[in-house]
């Protein structure tokens, strides 16, 4: 039997219509207790209407050391932005 409770990442939706957002982490023996602990630790003042917990070991993350190369392909594609297209000032509703 493992001695320490696993680590969980906590995501909270602050109200209907808003994304769940990462708020921190906590330890809990299983997902049910993780949800209850997340309620007590992160929503003592009604900060949420929905909680997600994910065991930290199940999260795959991009490597910050590769980020220059990793995001490089999007860097020179300014034509993906609306301001790239030159239109006359009198044009409305576009």
């Amino acid at each position: 039997m493992s001695n320490t409770w696993p680590l969980w990442e906590v995501f909270i939706r602050s109200k209907q219509g808003i994304h769940h957002k990462h708020v921190g982490s906590l330890h809990a023996p299983d997902e049910e207790v993780a949800i209850e602990n997340a309620r007590d630790v992160y929503t003592r003042r009604q900060e949420g209407v929905s909680i997600w917990v994910v065991e930290s070991k199940n999260i795959t993350a991009s490597n910050p050391e590769d980020s220059d190369a990793f995001y490089e392909p999007a860097k020179d594609k300014i034509y993906r932005h609306p301001t790239f297209y030159d239109l006359p000032d009198e044009l409305k509703h576009i």
Partner: peptide, 25 residues
Amino acid sequence: AKVQDEAGHGLYLYSAAETLGIDRD
């Protein structure tokens, strides 16, 4: 409520420290 907050603050901080590679225990 205040004492419970202090417990919460301890927990936020322990989890922040853990991101640096030290474990809770």
